[in-house]
Structure formats: C-alpha cells, structure tokens
Simulated assay, not measured.
Amino acid sequence: MSAIYVHIPFCKQKCKYCDFNSYAGLAAFHQPYVNALLTEIASQADCYGAFGTVGSIYIGGGTPTLLEPSYIASIITSLKGRFAITPDAEISIEANPETVTYEKLAVLRESGVNRLSIGFQSLDDDLLTLLGRKHSAQQAVDAFNAARRAGFDNINIDLIFGVPGQMLANWALNFEQAAALEPEHLSCYGLTVEPGTALECEITTGALAMPDEDMQADMFAYTMESLEESGYGHYEISNYAKPGKECRHNLVYWDNRDYIGFGAGAHSRIGNKRFANTAKPTDYIETAGTDLFKPEEIELSIDDEMSEMLFLGFRKMEGVNLEAFASRFGCSVQDIYGAQIEGLLDDGLIESKNGLLRLTPRGIFIGNEVFSRFV
C-alpha cells in the first residue's frame, strides 16, 4: 500500500535547530498556497493514475495547524476525490501546541484527520526557549488534553533529547511527564545539529555546548528501557508505539514503498524514480498547474535501490528481510554486500536471525555507522 504526503511550509517562528523547508512570516500566502496545492493535486492526479491504493495521508511541515481547518478539509476532500484512499486510511497532521484549540482540533477530526502528531520537543520551559519554540510546557499538555476531548485516539508526541545543558535527570523527568499522558505513539529523537541553523552558530561560537556522547547514549538507553516496560514497542530507531499504533505512513518510507508528495519542496518516489518540487513557496504558487511546473526527476539505479532497501530497512527493529531483498533484485544481500555484512557482523553491530538482518543492541546506539556502509 502506498502513501501521500502534503507539505505545509509555514511556521510562526523558525526553531533554532530546524533545517526543514519552512518559513516564518508568510501568513498572507496561506490561501494562495492552498489554492496552488489543490491545483497541483488536480493537475497531477492523472499522471499517477496507476498509483494504486493509498493507505495513509500525512500533512506535515512546517506547522500545518497554522492553516484554517477548512483549508485542511479541502485538501483531504481533493485527495479522496482523485486517489483510491482506503476507508480506514491513516490521515495524520502535525501540530505545534500554540496553534491548536479544542475547537480547531474538533473540526480537523470531523474533516477526517484521525492521527495527530504534537511537537512537544520538551516539557522544560527553559529548554523550549533555548530551542526557539513558541509554546510553553503547559501549552503542550493542554493541547494533548484538548485533542483527547476532540476525539483523537491516536496521538504521537515528539520529544528531543541531547539538548545543550540537558542532563539525564532532566530528560527522565520530561520523558516521564510526556509518557504519563499515555499517547499511542512517541517519537524520541537525539538532537542533530544541522549546518546553517541558528543552533549550529551558537554551538560553533561556544555560546552553547552539546552533552557528551556518553550522556546522550544514557538518555537513549533510558528511553528504550522505560518505554518497553510501559508496553510500547520499539519498532524503529527513534519511534515507539502501543500495539497496532505504529505510524503507517513512516513505514511506507522505511519499507521503501511508493509515495507521492504535494506542495513546495515535497518529494515523491514512484518505482525507480524520484521527484522533487520546487522548494520556495512563492515559486510553487506561481507555477502550480502551469507548464513551468516541472519537478526535478532522478532515476534510481539498481545499486541505488539496493542501497536504500538496506539502510532504510536497518532503521526498523525487525531489520532487513533477506527473502524480500532476493525476490526484488534476483540476488542475495551477501552477493552484493558480503564484505559490509561480514564486517558489521564481526563488529557486533548487526545480527542474522530468522531470515532477517537487524541491528544489535550495540548497533542501535551507532546506527549511522551501520547505514553509512551502504551509502
């Protein structure tokens, strides 16, 4: 089953750690942008006529909940009118706490959104300020409770650990407070310092210092142990879910299946081809539906596809299915990556079990080292 992604590039304020395709201060472009989205969906739908059944729609950003709920409803209606969306499709939207109210959430739920991903990031007001977030810890909790009242029974909470100045005790307290809300899903990411961000500048100049690697590893270990004890399954390096509540949309990416992206900077993958829309919202608005709308196209080689299946598959705790690889490519993983596999087995970073290659407990902590062997 395939997926659709819709990108909303607007934010109230750019977070210090963010390098996503998002922009603050463009409220005047909300309606023109949605009009452009509807135009793209309508004009491109025929190109994807053989796309197949869609099991998930993900509306991300940016901050999609900056838009009026009626805009979100129109996007969902347009997609349902042009694609084979399953009746039980997972329809997710990302939300920042300061941009939602019970009333807005109730309208979103009524429009068909059935999964909410709330960007808590932290429940420490000082760390939220450091990260450049616009909300308080209390606003995050209030947003979660409002979502429950609005009928959402599938909620993810995003949290970040390894923030400058953060100690294990602080992370544990933040984490426990979020987990006590009993969300169906938790995404817990180690902070990555991306080039060109405000955070990178502050770290480079010495204004801030990242926790050392051992401290970050302790935070990661605490997270895994605590969530397992609380009944959450650790199904991907940074993601944990109650049984049956794994994010269907992200599994499409990690399983290397097809998806279509709509919006500024959105990416698609159809068969052995990737497509990327123009990133600037103003350019996107001007060209959607015209002959000037020409997503960048990249044709993947067999080597590219094999590589992606490996490093995406290793992100999942179940690992890479050796039979599925052989069925897709007509050769075994060992035929192509024998030396890499043997090296990782010898280093104790992966293991082979029941027809699967997967990260070991040690490998989980340095997953990037494993992934890099296949890029």
Score class of each variant (00 low, 15 high):
N368P: 07
A45C: 14
T205R: 15
G162D: 03
T360N: 05
G330Y: 07
Y71D: 13
A169Y: 05
T86C: 12
V54A: 04
T360Y: 04
R149A: 09
T360C: 07
D126E: 13
E351I: 10
D19F: 03
N21I: 02
F311T: 03
P64C: 14
F293G: 00
R115A: 06
S136Q: 09
T360D: 05
G330W: 03
Q44E: 14
A279V: 14
L359C: 13
Y48T: 02
Y253R: 08
M210S: 07
E194C: 10
L128M: 06
V34S: 08
C331H: 02
V163K: 07
G165D: 12
A3C: 05
K104M: 06
R148C: 07
E103H: 12
I336H: 00
M317A: 13
R82M: 08
L37H: 09
G62D: 08
F20M: 03
I302C: 14
Q44L: 10
T278D: 05
S136M: 06
V54I: 15
T192G: 01
K273W: 00
E342P: 01
I336V: 15
A89V: 07
S56G: 13
L357D: 02
I155S: 05
A50C: 11
D88F: 01
E318W: 05
A73C: 03
L191S: 10
A172T: 14
T197I: 09
A276M: 13
E305T: 09
E98D: 14
G348D: 06
Y48F: 15
N250P: 04
A146D: 11
E228N: 15
S230K: 15
S352I: 06
A178T: 04
S307L: 01
A180F: 05
P87Q: 11
F329D: 05
G330F: 02
M317T: 15
G244F: 05
A89M: 07
A339D: 14
Q334D: 13
A45L: 12
G355P: 08
G330R: 03
E299S: 14
P32E: 10
F314R: 00
